[in-house]
Write a protein that binds this DNA or RNA. Structure first.
Lengths: 190, 190
DNA sequence: ATTTCATTATACCAATCGGTATACGAGCTG
DNA sequence: CAGCTCGTATACCGATTGGTATAATGAAAT
């Protein structure tokens, strides 16, 4: 792993652990075992570091979502596989996903928030599209596709917070994922 | 309004807008039209400022939750009134509630996160308690009370993000609130 | 052997960070 | 008037912030 990648990895860990603003450039390069000019040789600024992270890691998630959607499954199966993609991604790229989650809820004036929003918005567009294309199956949604998409990702993220932090075992079972989607579709009575 | 309150109000706005870490003490006192020693006369530190905010504003929300729970309503009506309390609070104390939401999702090492967690945990405890005490009505929940509480607040917060940012009119209608709770209880098919 | 180019470090920048030592002035009390 | 407390400002602290000018490296190409 060359310095370029090491820097990115260390930046991700420190952005996640300390927060983007609180993490210092000095701290990042020390962890990477290099000095500041080296970092500024590869990335134009601290913000550029974040942007590179989003570019690299974000593409992975978006690609997997598109992959599921291209499979033309029936609606519920599609939601189920999307949930699986998210929970899997949230576990394998824990630092990145939770960093994005934090930035999404951070102040809209923050530069880090602005850098993360295109990636986050793109996700929501894709999920909204899932509900739009399911219109035939679901019937008239009264334009609530966006609301459903937000609710769906909201539930997914909540469960991620609960099951992704504590025990690292068997929290990604297919039954668990099915239960999450089922709760979203049918509520808690069932 | 004396300086003590002005400082708190300005700190809240800047913590919300810039984020806790990015907001400078200098910036806060300039907005309040005073100088740093005045702020440090009333509050022991920047973190103390945040703690004072949580103490003051947080108590308002917790008190309203307890008020609903003391009314001994039937389960669904209780959830409905809790949703109402949250959506109302999120609108009237927008800066504070969204600041807390951001801190909840921020890195666990951050001092601001640690300062906010007792307040946030207290909320979840109260909501979990609602589900626990509804056990007779809901039947065996297989220990999923915490999961339900997280899901419930998750849905509430999602809707708050959607309806609290855009138009400021008629988003708090009773029908809308009922729809949110209904979706949580019965899912999106209904 | 020399030039070239990508990569890295030394040493520095002005600006800002959170926080404070000290003193000044207003108002109350003796 | 003297003394005391509350509230506030001037001026400063060391540390750290993000960022850079410059030069030394080492390997490959001529």
């Amino acid at each position: 792993m060359d310095n370029r990648e090491v820097i990115l990895q260390c930046a991700l860990e420190l952005f996640y652990r300390r927060g983007y603003d609180a993490a210092g450039v000095q701290e990042i390069v020390e962890m990477a075992g290099i000095t500041k000019p080296t970092m500024y040789y590869y990335y134009k600024s601290k913000l550029g570091l974040l942007e590179a992270l989003i570019e690299e890691k974000g593409e992975l998630l978006l690609h997997r979502i598109l992959e599921v959607q291209s499979k033309k499954l029936r609606f519920e199966e599609q939601l189920y596989q999307l949930a699986k993609v998210y929970l899997d991604f949230g576990r394998r790229e824990h630092y990145f996903y939770f960093l994005m989650l934090g930035l999404m809820y951070s102040s809209t004036e923050s530069e880090a928030h602005k850098a993360a929003m295109p990636f986050i918005s793109r996700q929501y567009e894709l999920i909204i599209d899932t509900f739009v294309r399911a219109g035939d199956y679901l019937g008239n949604m009264n334009g609530r596709q966006e609301q459903f998409a937000i609710g769906f990702l909201g539930v997914i993220n909540c469960y991620m917070m609960v099951y992704n932090e504590k025990s690292t075992e068997n929290m990604l079972s297919d039954e668990k994922i099915y239960a999450v989607v089922h709760q979203f579709l049918h509520g808690i009575y069932s």
